[in-house]
Design a protein around this nucleic acid. Structure first.
Lengths: 166, 166
DNA sequence: GGTCAACTGACTTTCTTTGACCAAAGCCAT
DNA sequence: ATGGCTTTGGTCAAAGAAAGTCAGTTGACC
């Protein structure tokens, strides 16, 4: 088991049941896990990102702390955030994959949808002689267009549910 | 007996009875068989392909691994193969739309899937300064990659049904 | 002897871990 | 208040630990 994974699950254990927020001391945690303090930052930066649904606040100096807050966003908020802020004009295949995996985890994408998106931005879909930066630009646009389609579908099905029920 | 065959059967032994999934360390396995690590990749690439009913996942870096998952292959996807031929190396947005509509009609694509595919090959996804013929080439590859993904999904959901039923 | 599958090694890419140095916040003594 | 310690946390680059890629060599079979 990787150190990072241990630290990640330790923190997530603290965050579980109806406790959406936890505060910790970087140095204490590092000592507990017998590692460099900056290791904690690494775990936060790779496992507790905004994309993953967490916000980090911290303070230095005496009585300093790191606070990890789990944030809940509705599906459409999340999609809009991704489309308009997170995904810029250019994105790599790996980064795409990470975003899609995360959305699948959060059940905002079904398995087939996720696979479809990955296929559309995969290397094989773009295996045309063309500089990499342009491929990344196409990836960004394709990903945004597809997520927009999903967002629209969600909206329509919500409307549909409403008309059904009332 | 060739090395590749030994490695292949070693892995298949681990995968046999009701264990559809195995995780291994590339370097360890290479050491065990006294061969170059890349030999493992060769075996995976030639014997554990998707067409042979396996999916490979992996992760690099400290604590890295290779995971081999057995999936069962079911009925052929002849139709999608034919579609591949019809698509060729280049296709317009309109032609894409017609094919997608037809597949939806034949219930090979769900409504959300169809919308997603149309979004991916739409003008807005490819609104990058680039000659039209190249866009059409990208469309063709993207469409094929996505349809292949759907075909694979169908196969995997059949597997899922099998495991559900015992 | 030619051809194709098997094999290898050098190089690349990705992920993790650490350590040296930096920056902010509180705590004093003046 | 304020200038200097002390106590935190932040950043970044480099080293380390896997796995991936690919071009070239070897070998087995026709």
């Amino acid at each position: 088991m990787r150190l990072s994974d241990s630290i990640e699950s330790f923190i997530k254990t603290m965050l579980t049941q109806d406790e959406p927020e936890v505060e910790l001391k970087r140095n204490e945690l590092a000592e507990y896990f017998n590692c460099a303090p900056s290791q904690i930052n690494y775990v936060l930066a790779t496992r507790f990102t905004l994309d993953n649904g967490y916000v980090i606040e911290s303070r230095r100096g005496g009585g300093g702390f790191i606070r990890i807050v789990r944030v809940v966003r509705t599906g459409s908020q999340k999609l809009l955030y991704l489309i308009h802020e997170r995904i810029g004009d250019s994105i790599s295949e790996g980064e795409c994959a990470r975003i899609v995996a995360q959305l699948k985890e959060e059940r905002l994408l079904t398995e087939p949808e996720a696979a479809l998106i990955c296929a559309a931005v995969s290397g094989s879909a773009l295996s045309v002689p063309m500089p990499e930066p342009i491929k990344d630009a196409i990836r960004a646009k394709t990903l945004k267009a597809m997520l927009t389609s999903v967002a629209r579908q969600n909206r329509e099905s919500a409307v549909h549910a409403l008309t059904q029920n009332g």
